[in-house]
Design a protein around this nucleic acid. Sequence first.
DNA 1: TCTTCATTTCGATAAATTTCGAAATAAAGC
DNA 2: GCTTTATTTCGAAATTTATCGAAATGAAGA
Lengths: 112, 112
Amino acid sequence: MNDTPTLTLETAASKFAALGSEQRLLVLHTMVRAGPEGLPIGALGERTGITGSTLTHHLKILSAAGLVKQEKKGRSTICAGADYAEVQALSEYLLRQCCADCDAPDKDHQHG
Amino acid sequence: MNDTPTLTLETAASKFAALGSEQRLLVLHTMVRAGPEGLPIGALGERTGITGSTLTHHLKILSAAGLVKQEKKGRSTICAGADYAEVQALSEYLLRQCCADCDAPDKDHQHG
DNA sequence: TCTTCATTTCGATAAATTTCGAAATAAAGC
DNA sequence: GCTTTATTTCGAAATTTATCGAAATGAAGA
């Protein structure tokens, strides 16, 4: 399963940055709660109390980071959270190459 | 093992924000490579090419987010990456309450 | 104590981000 | 073609962040 196309520093940073805002995290959380079917932007606005134009702005950032999928349907835009692999890859990025520079890599700090 | 004290939106966002910078990610990556023994700030500077005062700034953010531990030793400050649980908690935060708001939660999108 | 080395604080500037309301666009339905 | 509804774009102001060099701090050692 080749899901993890080895994130670059640049993309990883932008994904984390996308998550690094209370409003965006709230938006994402709302979408995750809503499940894979997603929600139109209007509903996101109602549930989060965030203004339309601000939502558009945040969603653009989340989409660009690949954390949210958007699909136009009629006059609505349906938004849903991205899949688990996306998140998994991010979390794994953080510990990649652990101890690569250790003089004497030891076995005392297993990850998992 | 009570490792996951249920992150608040606020702390989760600030942790992600701390990771959402190429320089900070580079710094963290350098520390992770160095392993649990950590590195003095000077070495971080040499390896990353980041200026002292800027490094102090970034490290303050990473420490405040609990992603890095710092310890004064003589005239150096040794920095090391935080533990795996910290990272794990962050990643789990993202999918918490998945589908909580679904009308009919389905079993088609297992996470794991 | 004086000097040196490692880090931090300070002050400053440039750049990016957040957030809004108002106006523009675009799809649906009459 | 108009009207309504959903979203986006467009300024714009306020705030935050990034980044640096210079000066300050503080520990070690001669």
